[in-house]
């Protein structure tokens, strides 16, 4: 099977990244915002894997595994924080979460 050129992967990765940025900016629910961020992290992963494949170099692949591992830790911490905020407030819209001003 013919492997598509690296540029094609890069276009998909860039599209994922932009979808993530837009999702982060327009959504106000922290869990949806975290999902948008996850998309952006994975856009980076896709680009890394594609480049690593085209270079025949392992280090890019290793980076992908490290990002996946860190993303799991990050998701655990972020969700725990969302749960903590939700327990006190019974909702979690980021626009309402603002006791601090100035």
């Amino acid at each position: 099977m013919q492997i598509p050129p690296v540029a094609d992967y890069l276009i998909v990765a860039a599209a994922l990244f932009v979808v993530g940025v837009v999702g982060f900016l327009v959504r106000r629910n922290p869990i949806t915002m975290l999902m948008a961020i996850e998309l952006m992290w994975n856009a980076g992963n896709l680009a890394f894997a594609a480049f690593a494949r085209s270079f025949g170099d392992m280090s890019g692949q290793v980076f992908v595994f490290i990002v996946i591992t860190v993303a799991a830790a990050e998701a655990a911490i972020a969700l725990a924080i969302v749960v903590m905020v939700f327990r006190r407030r019974r909702d979690a819209d980021v626009d309402d979460i603002s006791v601090m001003r100035g």
Partner: peptide
């Protein structure tokens, strides 16, 4: 904590994608 984790992860996303392009 919520603001820090949301914006910090966003920043990391930029760092990862930037690193991927630098690697490329």
């Amino acid at each position: 904590a919520l603001k820090y984790v949301l914006l910090g992860s966003l920043a990391s996303a930029f760092l990862i994608f930037g690193s991927a392009l630098l690697y490329g």
